[in-house]
Write a protein that binds this DNA or RNA. Structure first.
Length: 114
DNA sequence: ATGTTGACATTGA
DNA sequence: TTCAATGCCAACA
């Protein structure tokens, strides 16, 4: 008790849980994560969770916006960090500098299919 | 304490 | 078809 409730609410934890399940070389989008959580519209909050996840061991660099653009690359401590990380994992980029979702888009739940 | 912003997405007109 | 408004949750001013 006491007070301490420093840990974030379940929402953040759920987002982190999904992000932690993203396989290497794959990427997912905020909307798919939000949908997997059951909210579907809280994509913005998912972004917040990722920002918090920036200080966690979660592969937040595998999460991009719906266009496959590395929206949060600026929060990694370096604008090229995210891109370099994804490339290092075997992710392909388009001429637009976005991730090839058509080749690396991973959806939560599809992998849980026992 | 309240209001606004923010790593977005979806729906409505 | 394209443009605008709304929804969600948390942190910051």
């Amino acid at each position: 008790m006491t007070t301490s409730k420093q840990e974030p609410n379940d929402f953040f934890r759920r987002v982190w849980d999904v992000v932690a399940q993203i396989p290497r070389g794959k990427v997912t989008t905020y909307g798919h994560i939000a949908r997997s959580l059951g909210v579907g519209s809280a994509a913005r909050t998912v972004g917040w969770a990722l920002k918090a996840a920036a200080e966690t061991p979660l592969p937040c660099h595998r999460v991009v916006n719906r266009f496959g653009a590395l929206s949060g690359r600026m929060h990694f401590g370096g604008p090229h960090i995210m891109e370099d990380l994804l490339r290092s994992e075997g992710v392909a980029f388009t001429d637009d500098g976005c991730v090839d979702l058509g080749a690396h888009l991973w959806v939560p739940g599809e992998a849980e299919r026992t």
